[in-house]
């Protein structure tokens, strides 16, 4: 279990801000920190990793104190043994993909974990390449794999997927879910993307101006009216077309375009680019077996 009680005066572009959060995260949870940029999400991750010193408060992980302002405990980043994926990937430019992973090995750690990780994230054919020759998605896979080499129990991800296109994002989300389970991680992810949050996070912590304003499951937070739908998918409105009496709304759900019929009253609240939930309630969906 992770208990954070963090206080820090931050200087941002919009002036000074007081960060004050009290967060508890269960072991094995997949948590998403959600909020506008400049809300203090990255600072929370940096304080957890020991890269930023809080003004006061406590950090306690699995019963051990990592930081406590009062007796003056403060473990160094090296002593915290967590995995972190940076927004700019932070791959070492002078090392190949494989060397980047090997660098992350602990003393006397057997290197078979490297081969395993290379296979899981599909880096086999890229392992002798230098980072500068990789695409964004490939770099991200290396960064995630490298963070997991020392087998941390906590993984921190600072908007890891925001710079990637949709198809690669979805693939990486699948990798993240698989790794979260296989490595029995407690994962904390910063994300703005609703469909990503719905897919990955068990709990969302909404942060605004350095404060936790709400937390709960993705549906608790982002769906106003109670939908007891059998099917729910988050997506983005990409087109709204008027057709005689009805409207057809095209929603991008992950990488698929879905067309949904809507009435004028519903359309009036929507515009292109809105994040929406598509749910089916009354009808029983049809199931077709996919023949291989």
């Amino acid at each position: 279990m992770i208990k954070l009680d963090l206080h820090k005066r931050l200087h941002s572009a919009e002036g000074e801000m007081n960060l004050a959060v009290d967060i508890t995260i269960e072991r094995g949870e997949f948590v998403c920190l959600y909020g506008e940029s400049g809300a203090g999400k990255t600072s929370i991750l940096r304080m957890m990793a020991g890269l930023m010193l809080p003004d006061h408060g406590t950090i306690e992980v699995a019963g051990r104190s990592w930081y406590n302002a009062q007796p003056g405990t403060n473990l160094s980043p090296q002593e915290r043994h967590l995995g972190m994926v940076f927004q700019d990937y932070a791959l070492f430019p002078h090392m190949t993909v494989r060397e980047n992973l090997e660098f992350a090995l602990k003393k006397h750690q057997h290197n078979d974990v490297i081969q395993h990780l290379i296979e899981i994230v599909g880096l086999g054919s890229l392992q002798d390449r230098k980072p500068e020759t990789l695409s964004g998605g490939q770099k991200q896979r290396v960064a995630i794999a490298r963070a997991l080499v020392p087998r941390p129990s906590i993984l921190l991800l600072d908007e890891p997927l925001s710079a990637l296109d949709n198809k690669i994002r979805i693939q990486l989300q699948d990798y993240l879910l698989a790794l979260h389970r296989e490595f029995e991680l407690t994962t904390i992810l910063i994300s703005h993307d609703l469909s990503e949050i719905f897919k990955l996070a068990q709990r969302v912590i909404h942060i605004r101006q350095g404060q936790v304003i709400r937390q709960g499951t993705p549906s608790d937070l982002f769906i106003d009216q109670e939908v007891s739908g059998k099917f729910k998918f988050a997506g983005e409105v990409v087109a709204i077309e008027a057709q005689e009496v009805l409207y057809i709304i095209t929603v991008l759900i992950q990488s698929q375009m879905v067309k949904v019929v809507a009435e004028a009253s519903e359309v009036s609240r929507l515009k292109i680019g809105d994040q929406v939930i598509v749910a089916s309630k009354a009808f029983n969906p049809l199931i077709y077996k996919i023949e291989a």
């Binding site: 890269l51 160094s76 090296q78 915290r80 043994h81 940076f86 700019d88 932070a90 070492f92 660098f103």
Partner: peptide, 15 residues
């Protein structure tokens, strides 16, 4: 050098 390079090495436990 990007500060995240040294930070990444520290988080990976390197002195």
């Amino acid at each position: 050098l990007s500060p995240s390079l040294t930070e990444a090495a520290y988080v990976l436990g390197k002195s």
